[in-house]
Structures are given as C-alpha cells and as structure tokens.
Simulated assay, not measured.
Amino acid sequence: MKNLAKEINACLKVLQQGGLILYPTDTVWGIGCDATDEAAVQKVYALKNRDDRKALICLVANDAMLERHVENVPDLAYDILDLSTKPTTIIYDAPKGVAKNLIASDDTLAVRVASDKFCRNLINKFRKPIVSTSANVSGEPSPRDFQEISEAILRGVDYVVNLQSEQLNSLPSSIIRLANDGKVKIIRE
C-alpha cells in the first residue's frame, strides 16, 4: 500500500509537469499523460511514432468524470459498463474538456472507466483524465508484459511505475462505438 502511494505521487509530479509515464493499466502496460494537455498528448504521438489522426484512449476514474468529458453519455453506456466482463472502452460523440489532438476527426473520444485500483487512485488524485495507449511503437506488437517493452519506449518516458510484479490482463480492452443516434458498433471484442 505504501509503495502504491509512493508510485502515485511520483506519477502526479510527472503528469502535472506535462511529462509521460509508463504505467500498468487494467489491460496492458500503457504510456500516459495528462489528457487535457495538448503538448503532452503530442509527446505520446511522437514517442509511439504514431499518426496523430489515429486517436488515443482516455482513462477516467468514474462515471462522474466521464460525464464531465462527454457532452451526452447515452444510458446504454452505463448498461454496457455494468454488464462487461472485461475492461471496455466506449467511443463517445462530442467530447469536451480534453486536448484537441486527443479528439478524433469525427469529433469522438475513446474513453474507459478504469477498473484497476492503481489507475483509479492515480486519476482520482490527479482529478483529470489520463491518456492510455499501449507501450509500443506504432506497428510493433503490444508488449504482453513489462519485459517486452522496448528500450525506445522505456527511454522516451519521464517515469516508469515500479509495479512490474503486478499481474495485468495483458489483453487490450473491448472497444465499442456508441453514437448519440443510438447506433452501436463493436470495433474490437
């Protein structure tokens, strides 16, 4: 518990300064930053060598934070989240209060309510959503565990969370597109 608090505090300092963290999420090891800081989000795209037209996922701590960053959360979203048996990312219309370069060209944002204790505590303390993208260079396979993370990624972040012994799901989240017009599309199961 003491180690968890120490790691959260170290991450907070980096996030508040616009830096990048490498951290265990509720799915895979992820690269994160302040989701409201356009310059920090750009650093993530640069580190991953990823086209900034390919949107990134944003993690929030709870439903209240989700509602602060999405214009209209459809009721169906709560049902999907309640019934999901694995971490689920939902793509919403009309995001707000996040970095412009985090929003897809069709004015959508992929958001996941974190189920992991470390992530929820970090985001709650930070009081803002954080970016979550797999810890790999674009086009390379996502690392299944910490040992598979490339040197380029390890060197490119400002802080690496020291919780390598934690067991991760090691599978990406499900992704569902939930439009305000009621259309539902499963992007990744």
Results as ranks from 00 to 15, higher is better:
K2L: 12
N3R: 09
N3L: 15
L4R: 05
L4K: 06
A5C: 00
K6D: 15
E7K: 01
I8A: 04
I8L: 01
N9Y: 13
A10R: 13
C11E: 09
V14G: 02
V14C: 05
L15F: 12
Q16A: 13
Q17S: 15
G18V: 07
G18I: 13
G18K: 07
L20G: 01
I21K: 03
L22R: 01
W29M: 05
W29Q: 00
W29N: 01
G30L: 05
I31T: 02
G32P: 12
C33R: 07
D34N: 15
A35P: 10
T36Y: 12
D37K: 11
V41Q: 08
V41E: 11
K43P: 07
V44S: 02
A46E: 14
L47D: 03
L47M: 08
N49L: 07
N49G: 13
R50P: 02
D51F: 12
D52P: 14
R53M: 11
R53S: 14
K54F: 08
A55T: 09
A55G: 12
L56W: 06
A61V: 04
D63P: 08
D63G: 07
A64D: 02
A64K: 14
M65F: 14
L66C: 04
L66Q: 01
H69L: 03
P74W: 14
D75S: 15
A77I: 02
D79N: 10
I80S: 01
L81N: 13
L83C: 15
L83M: 14
L83W: 05
P87F: 13
T88V: 06
T88Y: 14
T89Y: 10
T89I: 04
I91H: 06
D93L: 08
P95R: 11
G97E: 08
G97F: 14
A99D: 02
N101E: 02
N101D: 03
L102Q: 04
